[in-house]
Design a protein around this nucleic acid. Structure first.
Lengths: 206, 206
DNA sequence: GTAGGATTCAAACGGTTGTTTGACACCCGC
DNA sequence: GCGGGTGTCAAACAACCGTTTGAATCCTAC
């Protein structure tokens, strides 16, 4: 991996993603990153200006896509007649699961994303809210239409729990290891189905 | 806080907990910790041997208690006739919520715990599994009796999601801020009720 | 082919990291 | 009261951190 035909910037972003996932933002040094990317140490500051900006670019590269896919899936679900709770949840969850399955680094990125949630770092939270907040709002509006009897604030509570459980699931936080013999893709897809059913039941709870 | 009548070891543990929660394990330096604890820099290596061992002790101080309380609550719930899914979930969730509400650092610790989940650090995962795994096993057995039609592996999936959502909730990951005017205790207790109902519905899903 | 901007490189910058040292103060049992 | 373990302290250690520098190299446009 990180073969030579990728540009220096791309190799740095890929290596940074891997190492931030494994050791955290403070724990991964630029020397580790540049060594893994097979790139000179000074290249990071030349191409990205600073370590902090490199972190932001690692997020931007994936989040723009993820948000767009989620909104597209939501629109598609809303256009289909008779959209159910399950179809909306699937629109939210599936793009994230697919990202986590994507070859060349998507799996590492979701762990980076989970780290970002764990960080209390205000700048990072603001960055994520700017790129993420309006997506959650659109989903909230769609769910509200399907659950007219549910208090709006209560719905926020429950969507928050769903988003939390999803973050947890995507990052493979679970201590329970997958059955040997079942490959990663099947493992994640079954997890997605379970999560959708679980979340739908939770949202429907009286 | 960190008044003088606490021992040096206790002051270090308290300060480390706060700073690990705020900046992570790599992000918080021993100089920050010892300064916050009003203690000499060398005291950490004198009392704990190394930074890594200090991290372990920060966990041990709280986890022993949390595990004991959860198991006690589980036993109490099982002795009462007609135990429900909700009462078992409450036994799992309430001690953690109470810890997160505890004065003098418990709230910081749950954020440290969430960080530990986000870390891929194998040594830390093993440490947590050693202190945490048997509790999850006992809860799994109790839930299995109440849900005889649910496949054992499926139950593991769902409990994993519950544990993930709980970790998320405890660490106050949510982007949704609590309504102003509602104090922290009420906020958390309502979150616990929502989580119990949500989780029970999810576990009962066909 | 050669000028000139873009990129890479080794080296060094000042500052911070975890850890160690040895001298110094404390305090309790004899 | 005094010796000896226990704890504290300022200082220094080597290693590592993010960043900067200026020369060397590459690549493209003319």
């Amino acid at each position: 991996m990180n073969t030579q035909h990728f540009s220096t910037k791309e190799r740095i972003l890929g290596a940074a993603e891997q190492l931030f996932a494994r050791h955290g933002f403070a724990g991964a040094s630029l020397r580790q990153v540049t060594a893994a990317a097979n790139v000179n140490l000074a290249a990071v500051n030349y191409h990205f200006g600073s370590k902090e900006n490199l972190i932001n670019e690692v997020f931007r590269r994936r989040l723009d896509d993820l948000n767009a896919q989620r909104l597209a899936a939501l629109d598609a679900a809303l256009e289909r007649p008779g959209s159910s709770l399950e179809s909306l949840l699937d629109a939210f969850i599936r793009p994230a699961l697919e990202l986590s399955l994507d070859r060349s680094g998507g799996g590492a990125f979701v762990r980076v994303l989970a780290r970002a949630y764990a960080e209390h770092n205000d700048a990072l939270r603001k960055f994520l809210s700017d790129n993420y907040g309006h997506v959650l709002k659109r989903f909230h509006a769609a769910f509200a239409q399907l659950l007219p009897d549910l208090d709006k604030e209560e719905l926020y509570w429950r969507l928050d729990i769903v988003a939390g459980a999803l973050t947890y699931a995507m990052a493979d936080f679970g201590v329970i290891k997958r059955k040997s013999g079942v490959n990663e893709q099947t493992h994640r897809e079954r997890y997605a189905e379970h999560l959708v059913r679980f979340a739908a039941a939770g949202l429907r709870a009286p």
